[in-house]
Amino acid sequence: MFDYASRADPYPLYAELRETPVARQHDGSYVISTHREITDVLNDPRLSSDVRNLSRAMPSPEAGATSSFIHRDSPEHDRLRRMAMRQFGPPHTPGLVTGLEPALADTVGGLLDGVTDKERIDIVDDFALPLPVTVICHLLGVPREDEPRFHLWVNDIMDSVDYEAGADPKERLDKGVRARNDLRQSLGELVEQRHGRPGDDLLSRLANDDGPDGRMTDADIVATAKVLLIAGHETTVNLITNGMLTLLRHPDVLQRLRGEPDLIVPLVEELLRYEPPVHIIPWRAAYSDITVADTVIPQGSQIMLMLASGSRDPHRFHDPDRFDPDRHDNQHLGFGSGIHLCFGGPLARREAQIALTELVRRLDRPTLVADPPPYRRSPVLRGPIHLDIEQGGG
């Protein structure tokens, strides 16, 4: 799974993994690769998302920093998630994502205005990479003059995710650590400025809300904002880039989308199944011994969930290796499942829908320069590091 040679096409490996739904590895961890078992585990209250419940220590890039709710368990997870969702989506703020659409459309249009007259475009660097940070900064209420710093920090953090000891200069890792600290400090200062000054941005709402669960601490607000900026950024970049790559590999679907823009909604759902932005949840911990598919997993064991494998499980999906935007009953695992279902999923979906629709509409006969393109090292957050296309092709 971690061999870079598998990155461009890991799906044959996933098919092999599914022959043993729960497979114990040499290091004592367990890999789960089938849809039913992954879904069961993600909805099992005996599974922990808190790294402290693992029997072996896991390194942390931010020792001492407050963990976000996605790395906590019930009831603390549930309380913090409720507090965040009061300001992020329905039923309390049902218009948040749709209210962002004008700004999102302007950002997409502005990025495309800068590249559509070029013969050669890198979908990642020229478009998909800057888009999510700009949108999330707008959502959080980051001042426009501070956005360039946030772009640099997020890029340095994501670059450090691909760090390989012995192969990469340590400065790459150090830059990521500094960026995490600088980002946390800047967000903390912004939250302090919001106290007693209610506004429409998410930081203001979280800093001044006294709902049924009380008020979030500043540290928890910062941790929540970082989840949106970092996790939300990378998943959206990969979703857009994998989506464009898939459309270029399926020109009949690309052409159909030009004439049927409403197709984009089921198409993005199929992309989340067929070429998802997140392939692996790299760990869960068992609170106690549990049995999954007749395999006993001991308490404290690391469990790795192969989401992308589960979404291509032939026992759950008909003809799973075919890209089919008309697919029905598409219960993919692209955003996970259970109480940790992706917090920013509705925003990522809408960003991808608008971005891919406009790319298809405005690019002139785009063709791939290289197939497969170069991929990032990470097997967890899988996507091309560059996606070069040429316009005006035959």
Score class of each variant (00 low, 15 high):
Gly300Leu: 08
Pro298Tyr: 14
Phe335Gly: 04
Leu341Pro: 01
Leu267Val: 12
Tyr287Met: 04
Ala370Ser: 14
Tyr287Lys: 11
Arg350Ser: 08
Arg349Phe: 09
Asp319Gln: 09
Gly338Arg: 05
Ser309Trp: 01
His279Thr: 05
Ser337Arg: 09
Arg376Trp: 07
Arg376Phe: 04
Gln299Trp: 01
Pro277Met: 03
Ile264Asp: 06
Phe323Met: 07
Pro325Asp: 10
Leu341Lys: 11
His315Thr: 15
Leu307Gln: 03
Pro251Leu: 04
Thr291Asn: 14
Leu247Val: 14
Ile297Arg: 10
Gln331Ala: 14
Leu356Asn: 12
Val292Asp: 10
Ser309Gln: 01
His318Ala: 14
Asp321Met: 05
Arg377Gly: 14
Leu368Gly: 08
Gln331Asn: 12
Leu271His: 10
Asp289Met: 11
Thr357Met: 02
Pro320Gln: 03
Gln302Ile: 10
Leu267Met: 13
Gly344Tyr: 06
Pro314Thr: 04
Arg258Gly: 07
Pro277Gln: 08
His250Pro: 08
Leu368Arg: 09
Leu347Asn: 05
Ile297Ala: 11
Arg322Gln: 12
Asp364Phe: 03
Gly310Gln: 04
Asp371Phe: 10
Pro325Arg: 11
Ile297Thr: 13
Ala308Arg: 02
Arg376Glu: 08
Ser337Glu: 05
Cys342Ser: 12
Gln353Trp: 03
Tyr375Ser: 11
Thr291Pro: 05
Gly243Phe: 05
Pro366Asp: 12
Gly344Asp: 06
His250Glu: 13
Ser301Asn: 06
Gln331Ile: 00
Pro282Cys: 00
Asp324Phe: 04
Pro298His: 11
Pro282Met: 00
Arg350Phe: 00
Asp313Trp: 01
Asp313Thr: 04
Gly338Trp: 02
Ile303Arg: 02
Val253Glu: 11
Leu363Pro: 05
Ala293Lys: 09
Ser288Ala: 15
Val296Leu: 14
Ser311Asp: 02
Arg349Val: 14
Ala308Glu: 06
Pro320Gly: 02
Leu307Pro: 00
Leu359Trp: 09
Ala308Tyr: 03
Ile339Asn: 09
Val253Tyr: 04
Gln353Val: 07
Ser288Asp: 15
Glu270Met: 08
Ile290Gln: 12
Ile240Pro: 06
Leu239Ile: 10
Ala308Leu: 02
His328Ser: 15
Arg362Tyr: 07
Arg350Ile: 12
Ser288His: 13
Arg273Leu: 06
His315Arg: 13
Gly334Leu: 05
Leu239Val: 12
Pro366Leu: 06
Phe343Ile: 11
Asn238Ser: 10
Arg284Cys: 06
Asp326Trp: 02
Phe343Glu: 04
Leu271Ile: 11
Leu368Asn: 07
Ile240Glu: 09
His340Pro: 01
Gly243His: 07
Asp294Lys: 14
Arg377Met: 03
Asp252Ile: 04
Arg349Asp: 01
Gly338His: 06
Phe343Tyr: 15
Asp294Pro: 07
Phe317Ser: 02
Ala348Cys: 05
Leu305Ile: 12
Leu333Ile: 03
Leu267Lys: 12
Pro277Ala: 11
